[in-house]
Design a protein around this nucleic acid. Structure first.
Lengths: 215, 215
DNA sequence: ACCTGAACACCGTTCAAGT
DNA sequence: ACCTGAACACCGTTCAAGT
């Protein structure tokens, strides 16, 4: 109302919300989701723990803002593609890249339900591209959900496999051991073909199949 | 070695590991993953917290045992199907049903990497069915991973959508609001077609597409 | 209006001491 | 051999009091 007031209206100084979110994403990338603590984040920002609750009412709200921010760049590469079918593929690849570019990115994304402009804008663009291929509203939304679910699940497993975490290098050895100890002939044979499997190629295969019946 | 010794060899009384796992699954189903606490589990079992660490070295180990136990019944329905292609579909449907039958089942499954007989036996049977359709070892494993990733991602979202949790009914209203406030014409149109969407049908569509190129 | 400092009610995990 | 009881080092969250 008054001219003297700074541009804050409700509570949160919106400028620093972004700053805190960026610091949280940096911390996530360096230490992983399990080590992302409100206290560690506070000291990274240079503030007391309680202060964070002036920016975000809850840790879930922070994680949601992080998920929203993760998607900030994932439309750029696809938006200019003329062929709608190729645009659809580019959108989904962009989502995978966005999630892969932060440690535990898929876990954060799958654990939240952001409704910010990046998330909804992405869903809108993906739906738009699907409609342009000739699908009606219902079919476009179904295909969008399908590829989104697939991408989430795939990157989740990709990042779980990468994780050279606390005891995971042990974990993969244990898997090999368990397969050889037990009676799993198909798994034993497939294991060799699987070592160093190209996960990008696997993702592309899934994406191709899920979009195979596009008009 | 000696005949007097009871059949315990190392540390854990294996009989009660199963009992604790069952109690944990019961607690999970009643209260959800976020409320599954070692202390709550201890009091449900009628024991002190520290005692649980005689059965499981860590909470992660408990969750892994829970994931393994979840898959106990998911092969039964498919194992007798003669047509290999139909058997593949039945295995994946069985996995979805198994995960859906516990609250937060997919979150537990996706967050662990069980290597017990249920998990490996399921993977072995799925691979065997895929080989029988005519796929070679590498192709069978790739398709298996694909449908597994899809199923995980799909049920994860299914259970997140169901969750009439602490503030989620508010959450869906907020989504509708955000879509109508913003400039998302495709999402706004698709929203009506989506309400009460049949998630089982959507899962079947994804499954059909991912297995469409089977020989 | 914003931040500090301190507390509350929890966690997972460990380990002496009992029996 | 197994369990108890109590502690350790943390959590997320809240809130008076300061400025």
């Amino acid at each position: 109302m008054t001219a003297h007031q700074p541009r804050t209206r409700g509570r949160p100084p919106a400028a620093d919300r972004a700053h805190v979110t960026a610091a949280a994403l940096r911390l996530l990338d360096e230490e992983g989701l399990d080590a992302l603590t409100m206290r560690k984040l506070a000291s990274a920002v240079g503030v007391q723990v309680g202060t964070l609750y002036g920016y975000f009412p809850t840790k879930t709200a922070l994680l949601t803002a992080m998920a929203e921010e993760m998607l900030s760049g994932c439309r750029a590469a696809a938006d200019g593609i003329a062929d709608p079918r190729e645009r659809v593929l580019a959108f989904v690849r962009g989502l995978r890249t966005a999630l892969l570019s932060y440690r535990d990115g898929a876990r954060v994304y799958a654990g939240t339900h952001a409704i910010g402009p990046n998330t909804l804008g992405f869903a809108e663009s993906l739906n738009g591209a699907l409609r342009e291929t000739g699908l009606d509203a219902a079919a476009a939304m179904k295909t969008a959900l399908l590829v989104l679910h697939f991408a989430t699940g795939h990157v989740l497993e990709e990042q779980a496999a990468i994780q050279a975490g606390p005891d995971l290098p042990v974990g993969v050895g244990r898997l090999r051991e368990a397969i050889e100890d037990g009676d799993y002939p198909h798994l034993a044979e497939a294991q060799d073909h699987l070592t160093g499997a190209d996960l990008t190629e696997l993702f592309e295969q899934g994406l191709r199949l899920l979009t195979a019946d596009l008009p």
